[in-house]
């Protein structure tokens, strides 16, 4: 069973967010709650459906993650870009933070 996290975009500002252990939404994938079994995945999915119905988030979806240096990181390129920022304009945003550079994670 693969390890999964729940990603979405916050309705109000479109910011990419991940469901956290505490049940909130963080703009850092490192804070994401991860689930490794079918039951856990179903729980995440259910939370996504509810948060969508509550107009908190849109485009909620489960994504594959793996642990690196003790924190979850998406495995697929698009999700890594979502988590770590575009691979261009490295002077701005998340992608400007040295630790979160996609290159270092890839």
């Amino acid at each position: 069973m693969s390890l999964k996290a729940l990603k979405a975009n916050r309705l109000i500002d479109g910011e990419a967010v991940w469901l956290t252990e505490a049940g909130g939404w963080s703009d850092r994938v490192s804070a994401a709650r991860t689930e490794g079994d079918a039951e856990g995945h179903a729980t995440l999915e259910q939370i996504g459906v509810q948060a969508t119905a509550d107009s908190l988030v849109v485009n909620a979806e489960l994504i594959d993650v793996e642990f690196r240096d003790g924190a979850p990181v998406p495995t697929k390129l698009k999700e890594r870009i979502r988590a770590l920022g575009p691979t261009v304009r490295l002077d701005l945003g998340k992608q400007s933070e040295p630790k979160s550079r996609l290159q270092e994670v890839a």
Binding site: N9, D13, G14, E15, A16, V58, N59, K78, I81, R82, G85, P86, G93
Partner: peptide, 14 residues
């Protein structure tokens, strides 16, 4: 409706 006002939702933001 938002699309007809030019607003998409992308990977990182609108």
């Amino acid at each position: 409706l938002r699309l007809m006002n030019g607003l998409y939702l992308q990977i990182h933001a609108y």
